[in-house]
Write a protein that binds this DNA or RNA. Structure first.
Length: 595
DNA sequence: CATGTCACG
DNA sequence: ACGTACGTGACATGA
């Protein structure tokens, strides 16, 4: 049986050099996946399924997975045979457990769909098949049911599962043709897919495999302390409120604040409820004691529930490390995201929060090294707009917010006040976000007219920036999409919406996406280069995390200097802009120290 | 499962 | 007249 399959596959590969596959896997985490079966498609319309682990009454004897994989290994590892798949990062993790190194990585439908249109909803196979082939994929729910009678995949009947899995492999092969055509005929999309997204797969897979060490004992200690503080705060709140209630319930808090105690309603949520969000409480805290206590409770409660209580549960018992997943096909702008757990939002802004960060550590004899781009989005704005003033603000090594403040407020660099610098910083950020005068006014707590004056003065000093913003709007309007410096596209379906709010939101995205997206492209390029360099140069160092403009490494102390130099070089040369790319590097025994 | 809130860049 | 700064993920609550 297996020999026949082997000959069959090899015979076909000889003709096309390509086949598609779908690994059907079971397991909670990517580090512990079992292969239920493999579907393979050698030729459109002809796919088959190899079952291994289906388990139910009267389930037939199945193929031996190790025997089968031993025979498939040469094909899966042959650099001249293209294996089209869906989410090859996941497949790589699974196959690694069977000592198979999947290569080449040349066709991933998940990423092809993302590059083709990053806002086309979800990039899962059924939606992609509907979008590009007008085909309805077999719904897994029809096989397994739902609710309490739901079967596990393992329990799925082979006769039912075969058409489902085989169809997936067939769709992958068909989609590889149509999506590659779409990418090839739309600007630089194919290059972005081939030279950025596909090479990044193995970089991310390696980062996920390594994971980062987290000190569970330290976090447990913090949880205990936070618990004590929270109990005290809760008592104080109940005292003032005159009753006990659930402080974590926005609804109950609203009723205490605005009905019982009649505090002024400063803002409503989008459903019309009186808001108790942080900026509102901050405002109320100037006049009342209660909101201040609630703010403190909220921030500590967040630390405890999301970080100190939960992170220890994510530590893999075999490795002692946390293995987060990096999502490569989620963010519309081209950024990565991190899940299970999210390691891109570990606290840093408060002293209490930084204690959580201190629990991210290195092994004995190693260091953590954090390298982050300085003001990368603003530098990209300078490059894209070619505004002379902004370009020159970045040409020296000066503080750009200070330079902007000096220009906008007409004072010498060394005469810029703290407040002026803060305003300039808010303007700079606001520009990247497509701000309005209203938004700036709110941010700086000044009048709208005053904010408008700031913006006006900014554009007088940096007319190229206004011109760039205007041109971007026009292009977005004409083409229906905007692009990064490297040609990544973001389609803006709402740019012509009749609803003014939707349209304006799309216009702000049009302004922001090229800058946020170009920054994402640049750090992806750096990651690919650094990963390749590390594997060639044989340094005792690993990339562990990416946090949008920052890369975190773990390195043996003996290779620290080499790593630092090599990382800085590759990050600063990942793109050549008309302003320098500047990288700050920190080193420490934990992630907080490395900043 | 939606809502409100809040952690990060 | 109206609502208003970009992009994410996770938690607790409550229907």
């Amino acid at each position: 049986m297996l020999e026949r399959i082997e000959e069959h596959i090899e015979g076909h590969i000889g003709k096309t050099g390509k086949f598609s596959f779908s690994l059907e896997t079971i397991g909670e985490h990517f580090l512990h996946q079992e292969i239920l079966g493999i579907a393979v498609c050698l030729e459109i319309g002809k796919a088959f399924y190899l079952p291994f682990l289906h388990d139910y009454d009267d389930a037939p004897a199945q193929l031996d997975i190790h025997d089968c994989l031993t025979r498939l290994k040469p094909m899966l590892e042959d650099p001249n045979t293209v294996k089209a798949g869906f989410d090859l990062k996941h497949a790589s993790h699974v196959l690694k457990n069977y000592d198979i190194r999947l290569q080449p990585v040349k066709t991933d439908i998940h990423l092809a769909s993302y590059v083709a249109n990053s806002v086309a909803g979800k990039h899962q196979l059924p939606q992609i098949a509907r979008n590009y082939l007008q085909v309805s994929a077999v719904d897994i729910e029809s096989l397994l049911g739902k609710g309490k009678g739901k079967l596990s995949r393992r329990q799925a009947n082979i006769a039912d599962y075969t058409p489902y899995a085989a169809q997936k492999a067939d769709l992958i092969l068909r989609l590889s043709l149509s999506l590659e055509h779409t990418l090839a005929t739309n600007g630089h999309l194919l290059g972005l897919y081939q030279y950025y997204e596909l090479p990044l797969i193995e970089v991310l897979a390696a980062m996920e495999q390594h994971g980062i060490r987290v000190n569970a004992t330290a976090l447990a200690k913090q949880s205990k302390q936070l618990g004590t503080q929270l109990a005290k705060l809760q008592l104080a709140v109940f005292e003032i409120a005159g009753e006990e209630f659930n402080l974590s319930s926005p609804k109950q808090l609203q009723s205490i604040f605005y009905e019982k105690l009649k505090l002024p309603v400063l803002k409503k949520t989008k459903t019309g409820q009186a808001s108790t969000a942080e900026p509102v409480l901050q405002e109320l805290a100037q006049d009342y004691e209660l909101p201040r206590l609630v703010l403190e409770y909220r921030s500590l409660s967040k630390l405890k529930s999301t970080y100190t209580d939960k992170l220890p549960l994510e530590i893999n018992t075999a490795t002692g490390r946390i293995h987060s997943s990096f999502q490569q096909a989620v963010a519309a702008t081209g950024r990565l995201s991190s899940t299970d757990p999210n390691l891109q939002n570990i606290p840093i802004r408060t002293a209490e929060g930084r204690r959580v960060r201190q629990a991210f550590v290195c092994d004995a004899g190693n260091k953590l090294l954090a390298a982050d781009y300085s003001q990368v989005e603003l530098r990209i704005m300078a490059h894209l707009s070619q505004d002379e003033g902004l370009l020159s603000a970045f040409s020296g090594a000066e503080d750009v917010h200070r330079a902007t403040a000096a220009d906008v407020f007409g004072v010498a660099l060394d005469k810029v006040s703290t407040d002026q610098r803060r305003s300039a910083k808010a303007i700079n950020f606001g520009l990247i976000y497509g701000m309005s005068a209203f938004g700036l006014a709110k941010q700086l707590n000044i009048s709208r007219g005053e904010a408008a004056k700031y913006v006006e003065r900014y554009f007088e000093k940096y007319p190229g920036v206004r011109k760039y913003m205007d041109e971007t709007q026009v292009l977005a309007d004409e083409k229906g999409y905007v692009e990064t410096l490297f040609g990544r596209r973001l389609y803006l379906p709402d740019i012509h919406a009749g609803n003014g709010m939707l349209r304006k939101a799309a216009q702000r995205t049009a302004i922001n996406a090229p800058m946020q997206g170009t920054a994402a492209d640049i750090i992806k390029r750096a990651m690919i280069d650094i990963h390749l360099w590390l594997s060639m140069a044989g340094l005792d160092a690993r990339m562990l995390l990416q946090v949008h403009d920052e890369l975190v490494f773990e390195v043996s102390e003996k290779d620290l200097d080499l790593l630092s130099q090599g990382v800085r070089f590759r990050m600063t040369t990942a793109a050549s802009l008309d302003v320098p790319l500047v990288v700050d590097i920190g080193v420490g025994k934990n992630w907080d120290e490395a900043h």
